[in-house]
Write a protein that binds this DNA or RNA. Structure first.
Lengths: 121, 121
DNA sequence: TGACGATATGATGGATTCGTCAATCCATTC
DNA sequence: GAATGGATTGACGAATCCATCATATCGTCA
């Protein structure tokens, strides 16, 4: 029952990650990060993700709530932007971490496949 | 129903963040990151967090499932370590991002408080 | 003004996650 | 090999999150 302004930092941090913890939201952020000015209109996001408008809009709302993106209206189109370049950095680090880790587990998997098939393993 | 080895990267990434999306897990990771060798025994984590053993253990299990930490047993004490230094980096970036953002919102809050109290706002 | 395109909000049932308790496993020491 | 201490697993109600549908808002243009 804290507002983010007074909660201990680890709560806030957990909350940030909760905001990122959904494939749709990751895709949106990646599209934004790759767009010029790290921002693009909802219509582009709709097209990029192939989602139904209201579904996308809900996820955009949670990204907004978590202050990861900001929105602004121009005429009757709304444009979203990353709230901070560090968001992109966060994604980039997650990416290299995962590629690294996945490489490892693929190696292990390959190694395991070389073993004789003893028992139900 | 993908195993992480074949899912699209944005699913895997979302999954990673889901693994980090809990205050207890963040605290654990921070303690690990600050410990020598980025690793320490469960007993220290227990003390550091003040949690009940089984509760902590469940969160350690999810961190393991997400491959963010690794565990190893020495005698009858188990030691956990960050799976990769990049995990610490992820936390560090989240931290500076949040401090930055919080500074902004505190400013806005302070500014708002200066306004006359018009209506129910 | 009123109808329309673009986006946002509310409500609902189904799935996932959380915290607590009891029970279990594993290695040591007597 | 029984008992003990450290750590993990299983089970279950409570809380939270997700996808879908229906409805509402905002700005524009006729």
């Amino acid at each position: 029952m804290f507002s983010d302004l007074e909660a201990p930092l680890y709560e806030i941090k957990a909350n940030l990650f909760k905001g990122l913890a959904h494939p749709v939201r990751i895709r949106v952020l990646e599209i934004l990060a790759a767009s010029p000015g790290q921002s693009c209109p909802v219509s582009a996001l709709l097209e990029g993700t192939g989602l139904e408008a209201s579904h996308l809009s809900q996820h955009l709302a949670t990204l907004r709530r978590h202050r990861v993106v900001t929105s602004s209206r121009a005429a009757n189109a709304v444009t979203y932007s990353l709230a901070h370049p560090m968001v992109a950095e966060l994604l980039a680090i997650a990416r290299t971490f995962l590629l690294d880790t996945l490489a490892d587990s693929r190696e292990q998997l390959a190694a395991a496949r070389q073993l004789p098939a003893v028992g139900a393993r």
